[in-house]
């Protein structure tokens, strides 16, 4: 594929590919961090709406989201 391409272009494409590969787990962790906060925050908000206990479950959900997200992040970071 990269035979008749400019070696500079081929090299930079390769470097980009390597970066993307190494960034994979990190991207997973970052999305999980945000996803956890959003999901658990939304669940907390839903419980608040349902039971009328605003804002305690929302706050609890957000905090739990941060804990879960940070745990996933820590697992990814300290694994290797």
């Amino acid at each position: 594929m990269a035979k008749n391409e400019d070696p500079f272009f081929a090299r930079s494409a390769k470097a980009l590919q390597n970066n993307a590969e190494q960034a994979g787990p990190a991207a997973g962790a970052s999305y999980t961090l945000i996803g956890a906060i959003m999901l658990l925050g939304a669940i907390g908000y839903g419980i608040d709406r349902w039971r009328g206990t605003s804002p305690w479950f929302l706050l609890g959900g957000l905090l739990l989201g941060i804990v879960v997200g940070m745990y996933e992040l820590a697992r990814t970071v300290w694994k290797r």
Binding site: G28, Y31, T32, I34, G35, A36, M38, L39, L40, L64, V67, V68, G69, Y71, E72
Partner: peptide, 17 residues
């Protein structure tokens, strides 16, 4: 519990993104 939540959070992050 954190692990169980994390199990559900990962697909959720995929969905939302």
């Amino acid at each position: 519990p954190i692990e169980i939540l994390g199990m559900f959070v990962r697909p959720f992050a995929l969905t939302m993104r």
